[in-house]
């Protein structure tokens, strides 16, 4: 049964991909080669769509690939089933593992050794988040395409995005009550209006 296989293949991806949604990518590339369920073109479409829709990237990718696979075997209805099964397979191992760790953590919370480990880990974790922020900033503020065409650093800088980003940063500081969702919606509207 193809849908069982789909579930278990994604279960294994979920079990072995560590460190965020894009970490699933090499596994998906391999899955495409081994099973022939979807093509490399599907994968590049999948990345583009996953990154321009809300939600965790790994889940978006699994849903898209699940749909393509299911559709290939049983038409649109199969696509919907596949789109449901793949992300559930992907999240199942993490759910089990994190549940176990979480219970242990609650029990050993007050242990001084746990506290000693987390003393440095919190700073490291924040460092990784800051690095992710730099990564988004690089894409948002700097066009690698424009730079490779003109080799002019300043022509490749996206000033509109920088201004929007600074304004939103000040907005967050000033209006602490406003929900982040509001800023995201404003930014989307500004992006469309001013053709970012």
């Amino acid at each position: 049964m193809i849908f069982f296989e789909l579930f278990f293949r994604f279960f294994f991806v979920g079990l072995f991909s560590v460190g965020g949604g894009l970490a699933t990518l090499p596994f998906l590339t391999e899955m495409a080669e081994v099973t022939g369920w979807f093509t490399q073109t599907d994968i590049s479409n999948m990345i583009a769509i996953s990154e321009s829709t809300p939600g965790p990237i790994g889940i978006n990718m699994a849903t898209y690939v699940g749909f393509q696979t299911g559709e290939g075997f049983a038409g649109t209805a199969g696509g919907f089933l596949g789109a449901l099964i793949a992300p559930l397979g992907l999240t199942a191992p993490a759910l089990i593992i994190v549940l176990a760790i979480s219970k242990m953590l609650l029990r050993f919370r007050s242990s001084k050794y746990v506290e000693w480990v987390f003393y440095g880990l919190r700073a490291a974790s924040l460092g990784l988040i800051a690095s992710a922020c730099l990564g988004v900033a690089r894409i948002a503020f700097f066009s690698a395409d424009a730079f490779s065409q003109s080799a002019d650093f300043f022509a490749a800088v996206d000033y509109k995005s920088i201004i929007l980003s600074v304004l939103i940063f000040l907005g967050v500081k000033k209006f602490k009550k406003i929900h982040p969702i509001v800023f995201i919606l404003i930014a989307a509207a500004v992006g469309i209006l001013f053709k970012f």
């Binding site: 922020c133 988004v136 948002a140 920088i162 980003s165 939103i168 800023f183 995201i184 930014a187 469309i192």
Partner: peptide, 15 residues
């Protein structure tokens, strides 16, 4: 366009 705008917001929000 919307997504390019959102990215600028995401930088500010994460920061």
């Amino acid at each position: 366009h919307a997504f390019n705008g959102i990215r600028a917001a995401v930088v500010a929000l994460i920061l």
